[in-house]
Amino acid sequence: MPENQNFNPEDGLQMSKVRAGKVSKYKIDHYVAPLEETPLQAVDSVKETGKPLSMWAEAWRSLRKQPLFIISAIMILAVIVVAAFPQLFTSIDPNGQNACQLEYSNEPGRPGHIMGFNLQGCDVYARVIYGTRASLLVGVFTTLIVVILGGALGALAGFYGGWIDAILARLGDIFFALPLILGAIIVMQLPAFRENRSVWTVIVTLAIFGWPQLARITRGAVIEARDADYVKASRALGLSKFKSLVKHVLPNSLAPIIVVATVNLGVYIVAEATLSFLGVGLPGEVMSWGNDISLAQQQLRSNPMMLMWPALFLSVTVLSFIMLGDAVRDALDPKARKGA
C-alpha cells in the first residue's frame, strides 16, 4: 500500500518520496521511427512567404468574400447616392409648384408614376426618393454624435475607473430606465423642441437617449484592452497614461464600437420613423419615410400599397445597415480568427 493513504492536502506538502520512475511488468519494445519519416525542422522557424496582413487587412479580406457584406454594401451605397442626388432618379420634384395635383388623388400606378399617387395627388415614387435624405441624415448624424459622445465618455470611464466610472455608470442606468422612444417622446414635447421641429431636433433627441448604450459598450471594450500586457509595456516604455489610451487602448476597442454603431444607424432610422408616425418626429412638411407611412396609415384599407412603398424602402435600408453590422462582426470576431 502506498504510504500516503491518509494524505491530507491541507497539511501542505510532506517530504516528497524519491520518485524513481516505474518499470513495467510487461516487456516494452524500444521503437525508433526512421528519421526520413519526420525530418527535424528548425525550432520555431519564421514564415517568410505570403503578404503581411494587419488585423484590419485580414478582416477586410474575409469580409470581401461574404455575400452578406457585398449585398449590404451595394445597397447602402445606392441609398447614399439616392439621398445625395434624388434628382437623378426622378424627374418630378415633389417640392415643386405643381408636384401634387388633387385630381390624381389615390390613383394607382401608371407609366411615369409607377407607384401611383397619394391622397393629395403627389407622386409616391418621387416622395419616397426624396424622403431618403431625411432618414439617412437622422441615422448618420445620430450615430456620429452617439459614437463621439458615448465613445469618449465610455472610454474615460473604462480607462480611468474610480469616481468617473461610478458617476457614468449611474447616469447610464438612469437613462436606461427611460427607453429610447419614451424618452424621445417627452423631449420632443418640450416647448424648445416642439416649436423648432426639424431633422436636427430629432437627431439631438435620439442622441440624448442613445449615448448610454454606446458608452457602456465602449467601456467594456476599453476595460478589456486596458489590462493587456501591451498597454503595460507601452507605459513602461515611457508613454503617458492618456497617450496609451489613445494609441493602444482605443484602436483595440474599435471593433465592437463599429459593429454596434452600424447596427444602431439602422435602429435610429426606425426610431425616427416611429416618432414621425406618432406625430412627434419630423415636422409634416419634411419629406420622410416615417411621415409618409404615418399619412398612409389613415387610408390603409383603401390604398394599402401607399404604405408599402415607403415601408419597403425604409426596411431595406435598415436591413442593409444591420446586415453590414452582422458581417463586420463576423469578420472582426477574435474567436473566429484565433485559429488562423
Binding site: 520512475g21 516505474k22 518499470v23 516494452i28 519494445d29 524500444h30 521503437y31 521511427a33 519526420t38 525542422q41
Partner: peptide, 22 residues
C-alpha cells in the same frame, strides 16, 4: 512530433538512452 510517433519505449530507457534526434 508533427503528428507522428517518432519513438516509444520503456520510460527510463527513453530518458537515459534516447535514439531519435527529436
Amino acid at each position: 512530433y508533427k503528428g507522428r510517433v517518432v519513438e516509444y519505449g520503456p520510460a527510463l530507457d527513453i530518458l537515459r538512452n534516447p535514439q531519435h534526434p527529436y
